[in-house]
Design a protein around this nucleic acid. Structure first.
Lengths: 346, 346
DNA sequence: CCCAATCCTTAAACCGTTTTAGTAAAACGG
DNA sequence: CCGTTTTACTAAAACGGTTTAAGGATTGGG
């Protein structure tokens, strides 16, 4: 009743286990006749090599792990991950690899890492002092960092967050906005400090705002979801200090702000301009369509996988230069209605 | 330089391998003093059990596989999967399981199945005669079918596709539409026949259309992506036989039809009404927002994982009744402009 | 002082593969 | 006819853990 093993096949075919193994992995080392017999018997018995046994023996599992810093249910609510997986997946399929999603188990990412039988890891948004990275180092498993900080020990892949954010802020300022709010990404794991990504975007926003001599922006922390964005809108200042423009660090939050704003009777963009970040596909279909900072998410995934695969082959790889970001101007931004600048509605 | 094994720890701590194993898995079987010493040494050496070895020995890997019938890059372009994973993930995290994505490798899902070291599988949208299912049976691994057909050998989870589709079609017909087009889902794998899901939805549409005595609808096959939906719009009949309403089997395709239609100068819904299927979150934000058939995707994932976990515990489980679907009426549907019914724009 | 019970600890078997280091027989060259 | 290759196959040793069955102290009771 239990699983058919290589020994069963060997006995049935009247050969050694080695021969059976060769039949599958080294067919040229067997005689024509035996090869066919063994394969035939294996087929009849429905033999399938035990993956774990194979992984143990070959020291490779054919799987790469994606280290996810938060719960799957929150992370996969953001299309960002879907897109990243599209990029990763393309490379995986090309190299016969499968993809293991590794979220924190029991709150512990470290524990999850240990449990995972993978040949390499892609980590998402870990800050460089995260204890999970120590574990990875200790195990000595190839790792590529995505949306982290460049690290001496692992190649890391980033986009020009600061430049993109700066362009976004400058866009609003040039439209005549002065009073801005910033929707800040929450820390990736229950830690005090921001993710490196959030820090870089924040710095880009601030750089542009200072250069323009505009007042300090109002910061709100909000999760990467439409609902969180909507809540963020509620906590924006009212009255005189009401921001006319919102810089969101994610498209999902931006969409939340837009719809909450519209539900509260504001016109977007006339009364409230909103800029997102990421340019997930959905931002092109929203009402109004979302002005946002585009980052090449699929490319990012593809590149990350490609580097990891190099690493797994034993090659050494350098961190590539940050990928390019660009502002995509759509219909969620315009000059503020009360601005003295001409209203340039697109 | 190589990995720290249990034997290294044992030697360093002056105990047997067994003692080290007990220290982690059966601490109560060790004396206070040795326990602490062993754990200390393990910590210092940075010992981490080899997952594959563990999996081989314990006959469980702590992973469940998601069988994906198509390339990751196409499947993850559809938010449907993201949502399903949110449901699956919730249960996985609760039971300390990780999630392995298993797409076809080298075009072969069967091969990928063999390679995957998992304790159970969740299969998506396989038709019941798919050869992959044979492999699963042969290996004798617990399996739950999602969006398939109910099978004697595996529990399967479905929603009331037919009822939902019927409601969608009836909605358009009641608004006064006569000439309808149907965007049919493509077959999941390179096979001739439709997926069971597509078949059930089609049957629902047709049932309503026949009941209303409307003319045969015009069918177009299109992939589950916005681009595919847009292409589908292009291939719709023009002139007299132009459909005034489109029934799409996925929200993504529906969104594609809408935007292609708008780009071609049609007003949605006045000139063209569109109904989607799934009710992915994005369909609430589109312009206009999308009327669609809601299915509880997250619940579906949660339920599938729950059943699989039962199955893995050795319990026997029955296929639950199809989950409920309901029509969500938003702004992409109205009476056709040239209808003799009053235009009831919502 | 002996026997049994209790507590720790361990040697050895096992999980199911791959791989190394052969061996026996056949083929070959001179 | 005799080494030397080549061919076809195999026994045994990894791989790195867990688990079973048993062994050796230590303790307590009689």
């Amino acid at each position: 009743m239990s699983r058919v093993t290589i020994a069963d096949v060997a006995t049935a075919a009247g050969v050694s286990k080695t021969a059976v193994s060769f039949a599958f992995n080294n067919p040229e080392r067997l005689g024509q006749a035996t090869l066919e017999r063994v394969l035939g018997v294996a087929q009849d018995l429905g033999y399938t090599p035990h993956p774990a046994a194979r992984a143990l023996s070959m020291r490779r599992s054919g799987t790469i792990g994606v280290l996810i810093p938060q719960r799957l249910s929150t992370v996969f609510a953001n299309p960002f991950v879907s897109e990243l997986i599209q990029g990763l997946g393309e490379q995986c399929e090309e190299h016969d690899l499968t993809l293991l999603l590794v979220p924190p188990l029991d709150g512990s990412l470290e524990g999850a890492i240990r449990q995972a039988s993978v040949d390499g890891f892609i980590s998402l948004g870990l800050s460089p002092d995260d204890r999970a990275l120590e574990v990875l180092d200790r195990i000595g498993i190839p790792t590529v960092l995505v949306d982290s900080e460049s690290s001496p020990s692992h190649p890391s892949i980033n986009v020009d967050d600061e430049g993109g954010a700066e362009a976004a802020a400058r866009h609003l300022l040039e439209l005549g906005h002065r009073q801005l709010a910033i929707i800040v990404l929450p820390p990736a794991r229950a830690q005090v400090n921001n993710t490196p990504t959030a820090a870089r975007r924040l710095s880009g926003y601030q750089k542009a705002i200072r250069a323009a001599g505009a007042p300090e922006p109002y910061p709100v922390v909000a999760g990467i979801s439409v609902a969180a964005g909507a809540r963020a809108f509620e906590s924006l200042p009212r009255g005189k200090r009401r921001p006319t423009g919102v810089l969101a660090m994610s498209d999902m939050a931006a969409i939340g702000v837009m719809s909450a704003g519209q539900a509260a009777g504001l016109r977007v963009p006339e009364d409230l301009s909103v800029v997102g970040f990421d340019d997930v596909p959905a931002s092109a279909w929203t009402n109004p369509s979302l002005t946002t900072v585009r980052q090449p998410i699929i490319d990012k995934g593809r590149l990350a996988a490609r580097l990891l695969i190099q690493l797994m082959k034993g090659k050494t790889v350098e961190s590539p230069a940050p990928l390019h970001t660009s502002l995509v101007v759509r219909n969620s931004t315009s000059s503020p209605a009360d601005s003295d600048l001409p209203i340039r509605r697109r």
